[in-house]
Amino acid sequence: MRAICLLGAAVRPDGPSPALRRRAEHAAMLWQSDRSQVVLACGGAGNGRVTEAEAAARLLGEGGVPEDAILLESRSRTTWENLLFGRPILQEIGATSLVIVTDPDHLPRARLVAAKLGLTATGSAPSGPRPATARLKGLLREGPALLVYALRPRA
């Protein structure tokens, strides 16, 4: 079975961030192309009471993904934890391959984490315009974070 792993992004007091919306819309589109798969929505609670996974699940439902095709990992706070805490859920359902959904600049780090955790994964990122500030912030964050994660031992 193939699973889609939707990585978390911020949930603000007024609702899901644009990043979470983009990712959830993209994951729903991927699910629509092959309805035999499941979507694992990842992400714990940040500053709000709704977890990133719960907010993503709502968006997935709005995108046509039925509730029984959505799994939640709602404890994680980092990319590493998204996949670490998601791994037992994926193993329990017998997922043999994984498509990680996140933003383009985040995808190399997410795939590195998957490899370090022994997960067979590809990646898919939403296309389309993103604000220049979001792209710049992503690039500035991802370079150092990729280095830190590259130095982290396998789990």
Rank of each mutant, 00 (worst) to 15 (best):
R12A: 06
G143R: 14
A134T: 07
L98V: 09
H106K: 15
A69Y: 03
A134V: 07
T120Y: 10
C5Q: 10
Q91G: 07
G143F: 09
P66H: 10
D105C: 11
E62G: 00
A55V: 02
P104D: 14
E25H: 11
L59S: 04
P126I: 00
A10S: 14
Y149V: 10
W80I: 00
L117R: 13
C42R: 07
V50T: 14
L151G: 09
W80E: 03
L84N: 01
G143Y: 11
A121E: 07
P131I: 01
L90E: 04
P126D: 02
I4Y: 03
Q32E: 12
K116M: 09
T102S: 10
M29G: 13
A155N: 10
Q91D: 15
S17T: 01
E52A: 02
A132Q: 10
E67F: 10
I93Q: 14
G94T: 05
V65P: 00
L146S: 08
A24L: 08
A110R: 08
A9R: 01
T79F: 05
G44Y: 01
E81G: 04
H26V: 03
I70S: 02
A53N: 09
K137M: 08
R75L: 06
L151Y: 05
P153D: 04
R58D: 04
C42T: 09
Y149S: 13
G94V: 04
E62F: 01
R49L: 09
G138F: 06
L117M: 13
A41S: 12
V113W: 11
N47F: 15
L119Y: 11
G86C: 04
G15C: 03
L107Y: 07
L136A: 15
M29K: 12
S33V: 01
L136T: 12
L151W: 11
E67N: 12
C5V: 15
E81Y: 05
Y149F: 09
I4F: 03
W80H: 04
P131N: 11
